[in-house]
Amino acid sequence: MILYYHSLVNQVNMKIIKSPAELTRIKTDIIKKMSEKEKLRIRVHMGTSGLASGAKEIYEFMKVELEKRNIDAAIIRTGDMGYSFAEPTIEVKLPGEAPVVFGNVDKLKADEIIEKYIKNRELVDGVLPSNFRTI
């Protein structure tokens, strides 16, 4: 029997979701993987509004500074939340706490967030309370 190379590739590609059950399995795996080691999560909102106000700089700053200060964190790029009036915005989720969104974040503010909120759980000015419900 002749097996063609591309069909071989297809067979070994484990990513293809072949059934709804597999989707559920992958989903549970991902969620498990994410929650196993709950660590500091930072979301930088990088849609057009965010990027136009300098979200990319904040993203880079956070990456570099957190590493420099030996803080283990997952930094995630996302779309915008709709807070165009306060861009750039970032969300910080400390382990065991509800996520907190900060607005008008520049490098100074980002530094303050790391030093005060991330290290000591002290809030800083510019917290944006969640003003919506979701499903």
Binding site: H45, G47, T78, G82, F132, R133, I135
Partner: peptide, 10 residues
């Protein structure tokens, strides 16, 4: 506010 469409944005 109730977010259905924007549920995952951000």
């Amino acid at each position: 506010q109730l977010r259905i469409v924007l549920r995952n944005c951000g």
